[in-house]
C-alpha cells in the first residue's frame, strides 16, 4: 500500500535499471499518532458526573403558624446524622475507602415523645447503621439497618411499586422487544411509579433529615440516596433543634 512501483523506461530493453519500489515507512507516523491519542484519552472527561436534585424549605420566617406544613405525629420520622469520633475528638476516617464514618440515629413522631424532659426514659432516639442489602442463597435481598426501618414505614408504597415492576417485566406497560418499545414502557412505568409515590390513599412517612455540624457531606448524600431507593416522596433537610441535640448527647452518654 505504501509503495509506489516505478517502472523506468519499461519499453526499452537496454535499460539495466531494476524495477524499483519506493516504500514510505509509516512507523514513526503511527508512533506519533499513538502518543497523541494517549494524550487526548488522558485529558478527556468521558464520564459526566451525576447530579442529585434537592429542594430546601425557604428561610423566611412564617408569621402564620397555621400556614406551616405540619407532618402528623405518626408519619414523622426524623433521621439525625452524626460522625463517629475517635478517642480525642477527631472524626473517624475509614482506612479502606477514606470516608468519614457516619452514624445515623432516628426517632418516630415527636422528640422525647413530646415530654418536657427528653432525656432518660423519654428519649425515643434510636441508633441504626447504613448497611447494604443482605442477599440470601435464592438471590432475594433483605434490607438491613436504616433502610429496613424506612422500608417498614413505607410498606404500602413499596408493595405497589413492586407490583408495577412485575407488570413492567411482563410487558404490561408495552412490549420490551424493541428499543423504541422499551423506552415507551419505561416512560409509562416512571409515570405510574410517580403517581404511586405521591398517592394520597397510601400511608407514607414524612422524613426529616438533620445533621450535626461534624457529620460529613457524603453522609447526607447517603441519606438522600436512601430516600430514592425506598421511594420516599416527602422528605426535607432541616436544622437540628435544641431538643434534638439534648437527646443525641443524652443517648451518646448512656451508650458509651
Amino acid at each position: 500500500m505504501a509503495e509506489v512501483a516505478q517502472n523506468n523506461g519499461g519499453g526499452k530493453g537496454k535499460s539495466h535499471q531494476k524495477k524499483m519500489q519506493i516504500r514510505v515507512d509509516f512507523t514513526p507516523m503511527v508512533d506519533m499518532n499513538m502518543l497523541l491519542i494517549t494524550f487526548f484519552m488522558l485529558c478527556t472527561t468521558m464520564i459526566k458526573s451525576q447530579t442529585l436534585n434537592i429542594s430546601l424549605p425557604s428561610n423566611e420566617k412564617v408569621d402564620n403558624v397555621e400556614n406551616m406544613s405540619q407532618a402528623s405525629e405518626e408519619d414523622a420520622v426524623t433521621i439525625i446524622l452524626d460522625a463517629r469520633l475517635k478517642r480525642g475528638s477527631l472524626t473517624d476516617i475509614d482506612s479502606v475507602n477514606g470516608k468519614v464514618v457516619n452514624e445515623v440515629y432516628y426517632y418516630f413522631g415527636k422528640p422525647g415523645n413530646g415530654s418536657e424532659n427528653p432525656t432518660g426514659e423519654n428519649n425515643n432516639l434510636q441508633k441504626s447503621e447504613f448497611l447494604t442489602d443482605e442477599i440470601n442463597a435464592a438471590g432475594v435481598p433483605t434490607a438491613r439497618g436504616i433502610r429496613q426501618i424506612i422500608q417498614q414505614r413505607n410498606k404500602e408504597v413499596l408493595a405497589e411499586i413492586t407490583k408495577l415492576k412485575e407488570k413492567y417485566q411482563k410487558g404490561g406497560f408495552g412490549s420490551l422487544e424493541t428499543k423504541d418499545g422499551r423506552e415507551k414502557a419505561q416512560a409509562a412505568y416512571d409515570e405510574a411509579a410517580k403517581k404511586v409515590r405521591r398517592s394520597e390513599n397510601l400511608k407514607k412517612p414524612v422524613i426529616i433529615i438533620k445533621s450535626t455540624p461534624r457529620a460529613s457531606y457524603g453522609g447526607l448524600v447517603e441519606v438522600l440516596d436512601e430516600m430514592q431507593i425506598n421511594s420516599i416522596s416527602i422528605y426535607q433537610v432541616d436544622n437540628m433543634t435544641k431538643v434534638d441535640s439534648v437527646m443525641l448527647i443524652d443517648y451518646q452518654n448512656r451508650h458509651r
Binding site: N53, I54, L56, V100, P213, N239
Partner: peptide, 26 residues
C-alpha cells in the same frame, strides 16, 4: 465527601436566604 456538613450547610443557608431553595449536588 468528607467535608463537614457545617460547611455545606453554610453554603446552602446562604442560597436559601436569597431564595434559591432548589439546587443540585454533584
Amino acid at each position: 465527601q468528607n467535608t463537614a456538613f457545617e460547611k455545606i450547610h453554610m453554603v446552602m443557608d446562604n442560597l436559601q436566604t436569597i431564595h434559591m431553595n432548589k439546587f443540585t449536588l454533584l
